[in-house]
């Protein structure tokens, strides 16, 4: 029989997990929609990163990625395939954060600026931002996603695991 203290602890962890899902899922939906509904600025930004030279690949990345973010965000909000989704989100967040850092370091070096003085549109869906704010935001999202991946909390999940 669980003690009141462990029940309270469970409730707090459950609450934190639900809040993390809503924050992570909500942000992914919001940022994905900003890009999906305005794909032209996004494709220009993706091109600036010079990840691909083939225009077809550029178009596919720019067209698919925003809607993919919305899809993952909706799944996490609803609590469906939570761990699989958060693993996919980590696979998106970590390389993208490193790419932003690399681009920011290049801009800082070119302009002889401090890293935190660099401001640019990273293609995240919220316009020009100071890079340090963006890195802090992404780090928080990575922590939330990693936490959800490790913590098996099914409260208010439509279908926590697909099997």
């Amino acid at each position: 029989m669980s003690s009141p203290l462990s029940s309270r602890k469970d409730l707090l962890i459950d609450g934190a997990a639900v809040l993390s899902r809503w924050v992570l899922g909500g942000l992914f939906v919001w940022m994905g929609l900003q890009k999906a509904l305005h794909p032209e600025p996004f494709i220009i930004l993706v091109r600036q990163y010079e990840l691909v030279t083939n225009f077809y690949l550029l178009n596919v990345i720019s067209a698919v990625l925003p809607w993919f973010e919305v899809f993952c965000g909706l799944l996490v909000l609803a609590g469906i395939a939570v761990r699989g989704c958060t693993l996919v989100m980590l696979a998106l967040l970590i390389p993208f954060t490193l790419l932003i850092l690399k681009h920011a370091l290049a801009l800082a070096s070119a302009g002889s600026l401090a890293l935190c003085a660099v401001k640019f549109d990273c293609g995240c869906g919220n316009g020009e931002v100071y890079v340090c704010h963006k890195l802090a935001e992404n780090s928080l999202l990575i922590l939330l996603a990693a936490g959800l991946l490790c913590v098996h909390r099914r409260r208010w999940c439509a279908r926590f695991s697909l099997w």
Partner: peptide, 14 residues
Amino acid sequence: EALGVALVGTLVAF
């Protein structure tokens, strides 16, 4: 599960 999400997500995105 992640692979499934990725595949279905890609199709939905297209």
